[in-house]
């Protein structure tokens, strides 16, 4: 169990896009196991990580989130055999849109997360939060 998260207001705000059948159960499992992560992290559920639209990522970063994490299905996707490649394309396209806005590309992060990956999820969140906290605050381009 992680410790010392506490005061969510000061931690970077992270939006996680997660999938209903694969990563959501992993994130829920972190809850069942009472593994702590920062309360500034929230999740939106999609059926498949290939359905995340680049403009959602940009919207989140423009409207108050400090980072967006894509919990992708990887090889486990039940819908699309090339889900990995599709999800990478989405992240890359979002980053292309961030560049002219002067928003650091590191604010978008992606990793495969399985249905029992509770510990991995918390680790990803801790690492991402630390990485975001170290980024300089951008000024609009």
């Amino acid at each position: 169990m992680g410790a010392g998260h506490g005061a969510g207001a000061t931690s970077p705000r992270i939006l996680v896009f997660s999938t209903a059948n694969i990563s959501d159960p992993g994130i829920d499992l972190a809850g069942s196991q009472h593994r702590h992560y920062a309360s500034s992290i929230s999740t939106i559920t999609v059926p498949c990580s290939s359905s995340i639209q680049p403009r959602w990522i940009v919207y989140a970063l423009e409207h108050g989130f400090d980072g967006v994490f894509l919990a992708i299905d990887g090889d486990e996707c039940a819908y699309l055999p090339d889900c990995n490649a599709r999800s990478s394309r989405i992240a890359a396209q979002a980053q292309e849109r961030l560049r002219p806005l002067g928003i650091a590309l590191e604010r978008v992060r992606m990793a495969a997360l399985c249905s029992v990956c509770s510990e991995a999820f918390v680790k990803h969140m801790d690492e991402f939060a630390a990485q975001l906290a170290a980024l300089p605050v951008e000024v609009a381009a």
Binding site: A7, A9, Y37, S39
Partner: peptide, 12 residues
């Protein structure tokens, strides 16, 4: 699962 159980150390 995604709130009370993972932030039990951070009521606010």
């Amino acid at each position: 699962e995604q709130c009370s159980w993972v932030h039990s150390d951070d009521r606010p």
